[in-house]
Amino acid sequence: MLAFIKRREPFWLFVHSPSAMIAAFLTALIILGALFAPLIAPSNPYDLSSFSLMDGLLPPVWQDGGRSAFLLGTDDQGRDMISSILYGARLSLVIGLTAMVIATVLGVGLGLAAGYFGGRFDAVIMRIADVQLALPAILTALLIDGIARGILPTEIQQNMRVTVLTLAIALSLWVNFARTARASTFVEKNKEYVEAAIIMGQHPLRIMLIQILPNIVGPLLVIMTVDLASAILLEATLSFLGIGLPADSPSLGTLIRIGMQFLLSGEWWILWIPTVFLIVLVVAINVLGDFLRDIFNPGLR
């Protein structure tokens, strides 16, 4: 059936790896669910008028007192858990993806230039990266969040929350990309095809982007997937600590924070369901990243 696929090509390896297939399936399912949340979610968790306190603290449908209208139960405000999670995943994914893309562009750009030019430029960039690396990601994010709170007026702050959060996460992740891009560039720039381009007198920018970048994209792709998972986790952590998104537009982290209050009071679903959801999402993305790493490791092919 799959005879048309070339052996040992990435896609062949993919259909022969059950863990990668399951991970890809779960990731795709969650992304689709988040993307089409307004269409498939039973209710809109942002619309305060759509839920009533009367429906508060309902357990999932398989437990006594559960109602079929709320398959996974409701929180104390009467919000449907499924809807909250789908909308929350939407926010988490948007923030995670955007942060990852910003970190990639920033990190790869700086790393490529540092590796290509070397010398003092390289030293400065990499020392900045070292300082960045010495600060835990959460601390960086807290710092940026604090600065934003300090300088922005209160009205704008509420609207800027997502932007500030994204930037904070991106700034704590770019170092990974910069280091990998720099190391790979060091290897590539001594190869003869790069020398040929230099002899020809090609512009350094062209050599970096057209000659070197396509050759170092493999390891970067791996980091992109792994860091996507990190970005989502980081967002969840910040929201959990209360410096992320507010309770009226909850992301996964915010949902978990809300659920914490009910951890010991018997309403387990408010905490556990978003937590399990987050774990599944992050693990699935990580498994995909591992699979990509295997593909780009020529020793295993």
């Binding site: 003869e192 095809y193 020398e195 040929a196 002899i199 020809m200 007198g201 000659q211 396509p214 050759n215």
Partner: peptide, 19 residues
């Protein structure tokens, strides 16, 4: 830059593998 050109030793690394 145009008048002088070079043929390298290693034909495996002198051509960009991604193009």
């Amino acid at each position: 830059r145009r008048l002088i050109q070079m043929v390298f030793q290693d034909p495996f690394s002198s051509l960009n593998a991604r193009h």
